[in-house]
């Protein structure tokens, strides 16, 4: 197997508790990748485009974004739109991971080109299972190199 550049997982989530749980469950599923947390849409955008406080971040290889819709300031849908609008970033897989299950939101996200939409289950076991599976998915999937 080729030695691929290690994937960085960007978790964009404003709820600290859920952010914590997501990282916990990802690690439990065997993920050893670099996990970066951003608490707002703007912060995530800065990271993705290496602007502002993240201007000097290391190029960590391909990116996978786990995105919540409900974010302060710029919301998840707008961030998704921006990512997909920029040719440099549009190939980055974006998984929506959100509490809402409004069918309108689901439709919009797929329209904009998200790679998947996961509604966080209320049930703790189901939640951890969902994150575990996302982790497995990330492990097996091939990703475009960061440009």
């Amino acid at each position: 197997m080729d030695k691929m550049a290690p994937v960085t997982i960007l978790v964009v989530e404003d709820d600290e508790g859920q952010s914590f749980l997501i990282e916990k469950h990802l690690k439990r599923s065997g993920i050893v990748n670099n996990i970066v947390h951003c608490g707002s849409g703007q912060d995530a955008a800065d990271y993705i485009w290496a602007k502002g406080p993240h201007a000097n971040r290391a190029k960590n290889g391909p990116l996978v974004v786990l995105l919540d819709i409900k974010l302060p300031g710029m919301d998840g849908i707008e961030l998704l739109q921006r990512i997909k609008a920029d040719p440099a970033t549009k190939n980055i897989p974006v998984l929506l991971l959100t509490t809402t299950s409004d069918p309108r939101d689901i439709a919009k996200c797929y329209e904009l080109g998200c790679s998947g939409y996961v509604t966080k289950p209320l049930e703790a076991d189901a939640f951890s299972e969902a994150i575990r599976r996302i982790g497995l998915f990330i492990q097996v999937v091939s990703l475009p190199q960061e440009s």
């Binding site: 508790g17 859920q18 966080k120 939640f127």
Partner: peptide, 9 residues
């Protein structure tokens, strides 16, 4: 739903 996810988790 969001707080519930936390509480449950």
């Amino acid at each position: 739903r969001s707080p519930l996810v936390n509480m449950s988790g």
